[in-house]
Design a binder for these strands. Sequence first.
DNA 1: TTTCAGTGTGATAACGTTATCACAATCAGC
DNA 2: GCTGATTGTGATAACGTTATCACACTGAAA
Lengths: 343, 343
Amino acid sequence: MSIRISDVAQEAGVSPATAARVISNKGYVSDKKRAQVEQAIKKLGYVPNRIASSLRTNKPYFIGHVVEMPAENPFFSVICNTINETAEKAGYHVLTALKQGTQAKERAVIENLISLMVDAMIFTGNTASDADTIDWIQSRGISVVMIERPSYGSRVDAVLLDSYRGATLAMEHMIARGHREIGFLGMKHGQHEVEYQRYHGYRTALADHGLEPGPEWVGFVPDYTVEHGRQAINEMLRGGKIPTSLFITSDVLACGALQALYEHGIKVPDDLSIVGFDNTLSSICSPRLTSIEMQLEQAGAAAVEMILERKEGLRTGVKKVMLSPVLVDRGSVRDLTQSAEKT
Amino acid sequence: MSIRISDVAQEAGVSPATAARVISNKGYVSDKKRAQVEQAIKKLGYVPNRIASSLRTNKPYFIGHVVEMPAENPFFSVICNTINETAEKAGYHVLTALKQGTQAKERAVIENLISLMVDAMIFTGNTASDADTIDWIQSRGISVVMIERPSYGSRVDAVLLDSYRGATLAMEHMIARGHREIGFLGMKHGQHEVEYQRYHGYRTALADHGLEPGPEWVGFVPDYTVEHGRQAINEMLRGGKIPTSLFITSDVLACGALQALYEHGIKVPDDLSIVGFDNTLSSICSPRLTSIEMQLEQAGAAAVEMILERKEGLRTGVKKVMLSPVLVDRGSVRDLTQSAEKT
DNA sequence: TTTCAGTGTGATAACGTTATCACAATCAGC
DNA sequence: GCTGATTGTGATAACGTTATCACACTGAAA
């Protein structure tokens, strides 16, 4: 069924060793024999068997990627795409393992990847794995990179997205445009450091300007889904008085918010200004929203590059990369300073 | 570095063959030795090496998935998810290969998957590969399933989504609610059979009711993107008179359309009714749209099951599965018959 | 006691690749 | 014509697994 390197060698009238040298471009081969082998490869349609090669060399060129990918939220699929692209360029193949949340499940996924001999693993988003598991993986010579999972201390490489800075950018944007009544919609931050940073950035920015949010303008949801965003805003609207602007820490939530506002006939940005977060759906919804680009593409690429660095022996110490977010202005924040002049 | 089956055997005081029997649950092993081996596995943290196993058995339990996944359009990532899930349940691992469009690129991706010894390949969406390439893959004993790629005739298994029926459902929904002026926004259908079916369903439904669309109400875009949807509607609005409803053959396009309408202050469904297609973004946008659910989840699962059928020798002939779409009503079509009564 | 099926165990040889040898052959410099 | 480096080639042994033998041992039927 499958064509082996020895078939190629036979066809070309050389030894398997010589054929192997041609294929891997290593060692000395005369021009004549090289040409013979290349022709045989073409004729037989030979494709090297990477599985056998992996086994022999102990270098499968596999990177495992553990991630949860909700269909509704493109946040993670963006990272998936860049990881794949960057890895492919370096000759690695990405084994994406979609986990389902629980710790036991994640353990199974990790064992699966180990059984496939992965050179490295990337973990994206929230995890249930404890530090012992991470140690166990690393003890097998598998390098580990965490994306947006800051809680493992100094034992692993990590790519971090500066959520605090992101929140600050959003707030500065709104405050500079004259907003003083700024609401917040985000995710409950129990152990979620990242979520806390977004809220913390919000409160700090307000405090820096001597502002305090009305308590009815701050909402927390258990999860980033459209439906939660919708419900939260509906509840806020039931309260009566609304702020002049809202900082929403996820575009998915913001989409839900826009639905509720649409139903109530509240225009964005005329009646209410909004800044979203992560810049994933903000160019899809209507109206398009000003949002915080968290550099997801760079994050995926950076993770892969950190792995390559280690593989090539360029680095042994632990490295943390912190990416700086950028505000993408799509005009969903009304300029109150201008309109005040006009009236 | 890695713990081998022989290490487990030594720890348990048995031969590697016996340890292998315990691990693979095949052949006779006494309860006593089984217990010893199981304990040794636990103690050493042994994880079987699937690469070696694949090589030996010639059954890697890999399914390759060739697909293009634009970040903006969740259509394909939904299919990815179910393929992964279904395959994982059957003990297969999915190698997702993101292709970049050109024929040469797709060929490289296919060779890559062959080198990984995949048991089967799934192709989703438009491809550049010709029939020869598909024959070549199959000649290596690799089974092939096409999702939403109808043009290969009778040589390969395929999962088809009934676009014509989907269009019919959308049209019946609008016509039943009294709409007679129904516009169309879709993709150019050069060789794209699927796209043609959607347009064909639209025209046929109209004709069945003795209707003809105003020519300025029919738009074609080169690609399913938000921006194209937006531009197309902007152009339609420039024409002046608009229809009472629009059938848009992709939710991504519909999202762009909603942006244009929002900017012009045209309310959905009060001023204009819309039915979307594929039901991917229609619960995210505002307002939420009535859309045609194309059964993407079932499609992915069906593709995997067709592969399993073949592997288990339950089938040798070519099989085509046609999935029937369903309309999901989210109220984005105004009932003109009722409002006529009211006035 | 012999026979035979069933139960239990270990040695061994592959799967397709590649790293490491060993050994020629060539050619320059003395 | 000898040394030593460079160039070129093939045999061979692994990588970790598992399928196939071969060979025991048990208990029951003849």
